[in-house]
Measured scan of single mutants.
Amino acid sequence: DLRKKIVDLHKSGSSLGAISKRLKVPRSSVQTIVRKYK
């Protein structure tokens, strides 16, 4: 699940930009998912 991957990467200390590059999703999507998770 993409959300879980993003949250896991964020927990392990990756920046939003790094996560978005790695998973090839827009940075804004990463930000939204991380914000919802918090």
Rank of each mutant, 00 (worst) to 15 (best):
D1P: 10
D1K: 10
D1Y: 14
D1E: 11
D1S: 14
D1A: 12
D1N: 12
D1L: 12
L2F: 07
L2K: 07
L2I: 12
L2G: 03
L2N: 04
L2W: 10
L2M: 09
L2T: 06
L2P: 02
L2V: 09
L2H: 04
R3K: 11
R3M: 09
R3I: 15
R3T: 12
R3A: 13
R3P: 07
R3Y: 15
R3E: 12
R3S: 10
R3W: 15
R3G: 07
R3C: 14
K4W: 10
K4R: 10
K4Q: 12
K4V: 06
K4C: 11
K4I: 08
K4F: 08
K4Y: 08
K4S: 10
K4E: 09
K4M: 11
K5H: 06
K5R: 13
K5N: 07
K5S: 09
K5L: 13
K5I: 13
K5T: 11
K5P: 04
K5Q: 13
I6D: 01
I6Q: 00
I6F: 02
I6S: 00
I6A: 04
I6P: 01
I6R: 00
I6Y: 03
V7T: 06
V7R: 06
V7D: 02
V7G: 03
V7A: 07
V7F: 10
V7Q: 06
V7N: 04
D8P: 02
D8W: 14
D8V: 09
D8F: 14
L9N: 01
L9A: 05
L9M: 15
L9K: 01
L9T: 01
L9V: 01
L9D: 01
L9P: 01
H10E: 03
H10P: 00
H10T: 04
H10Q: 03
H10G: 02
H10N: 01
H10M: 10
H10C: 09
H10K: 03
K11L: 13
K11M: 12
K11G: 04
K11R: 14
K11E: 09
K11H: 07
K11N: 11
K11Y: 06
K11S: 06
K11T: 08
S12K: 11
S12Y: 07
S12H: 07
S12Q: 13
S12V: 06
S12N: 12
S12R: 12
S12D: 07
G13L: 00
G13K: 04
G13I: 02
G13M: 03
G13H: 03
G13S: 02
S14T: 07
S14D: 07
S14A: 15
S14L: 15
S14Y: 15
S14G: 05
S14M: 15
S14F: 15
S15K: 03
S15Q: 04
S15F: 02
S15W: 03
S15E: 03
S15V: 02
S15N: 04
S15I: 00
L16E: 05
L16I: 15
L16M: 08
L16R: 02
L16C: 05
L16F: 10
L16Q: 06
L16A: 07
L16Y: 13
L16T: 09
L16N: 08
G17N: 15
G17F: 06
G17I: 11
G17L: 10
G17A: 14
G17T: 15
G17Y: 13
G17V: 08
G17W: 11
G17Q: 11
G17R: 15
G17D: 10
A18D: 11
A18T: 10
A18P: 01
A18F: 10
A18K: 06
A18M: 11
A18C: 04
A18G: 06
A18W: 09
A18N: 12
A18E: 12
A18V: 08
I19F: 01
I19H: 01
I19Q: 01
I19S: 01
I19L: 02
I19Y: 00
I19K: 01
I19A: 01
S20N: 03
S20Y: 00
S20Q: 03
S20T: 05
S20I: 05
S20M: 05
S20D: 00
S20V: 07
S20W: 00
S20E: 04
K21F: 05
K21N: 08
K21A: 09
K21M: 08
K21R: 13
K21E: 09
K21I: 09
K21L: 08
K21P: 02
K21G: 05
K21W: 06
K21Y: 06
K21S: 06
R22F: 14
R22P: 02
R22S: 11
R22K: 14
R22N: 09
R22Q: 15
R22M: 15
L23P: 03
L23S: 02
L23F: 07
L23I: 05
L23A: 00
L23R: 01
L23T: 05
L23H: 02
L23V: 05
L23K: 01
K24H: 12
K24T: 05
K24N: 14
K24E: 07
K24Q: 11
K24S: 07
K24Y: 04
K24I: 04
K24M: 08
V25Y: 04
V25E: 03
V25L: 11
V25A: 03
V25I: 14
V25D: 00
V25T: 04
V25G: 02
V25S: 03
V25Q: 03
P26T: 08
P26D: 06
P26I: 05
P26H: 10
P26M: 05
P26G: 06
R27K: 13
R27T: 05
R27V: 12
R27I: 14
R27E: 05
R27D: 01
R27P: 06
R27F: 14
S28K: 14
S28Y: 11
S28L: 08
S28H: 11
S28D: 07
S28W: 13
S28E: 09
S28P: 06
S28M: 06
S28G: 09
S29Q: 12
S29R: 14
S29N: 08
S29T: 15
S29G: 06
S29A: 14
S29P: 02
S29D: 11
S29M: 14
V30E: 02
V30C: 00
V30A: 04
V30K: 02
V30T: 00
V30D: 02
V30P: 01
Q31K: 12
Q31D: 07
Q31G: 08
Q31M: 08
Q31H: 07
Q31P: 02
Q31S: 12
Q31V: 12
Q31A: 14
Q31T: 10
Q31N: 08
T32R: 15
T32K: 15
T32H: 14
T32Y: 13
T32W: 13
T32Q: 14
T32V: 12
T32D: 12
T32I: 14
T32G: 10
I33M: 04
I33H: 03
I33E: 05
I33L: 06
I33G: 01
I33Y: 03
I33R: 00
I33T: 05
I33D: 00
I33K: 01
V34E: 01
V34D: 02
V34G: 02
V34Q: 02
V34Y: 00
V34L: 13
V34S: 02
V34F: 02
V34R: 03
V34I: 11
R35L: 09
R35M: 09
R35F: 07
R35H: 10
R35K: 10
R35E: 11
R35Q: 11
R35Y: 08
R35W: 07
R35A: 11
K36D: 11
K36Y: 11
K36Q: 14
K36M: 12
K36V: 08
K36G: 09
K36F: 10
K36L: 13
K36N: 11
Y37M: 07
Y37Q: 05
Y37T: 05
Y37L: 08
Y37H: 08
Y37F: 12
Y37W: 11
Y37E: 05
Y37R: 04
K38R: 09
K38D: 08
K38I: 13
K38G: 11
K38S: 07
K38W: 12
K38T: 10
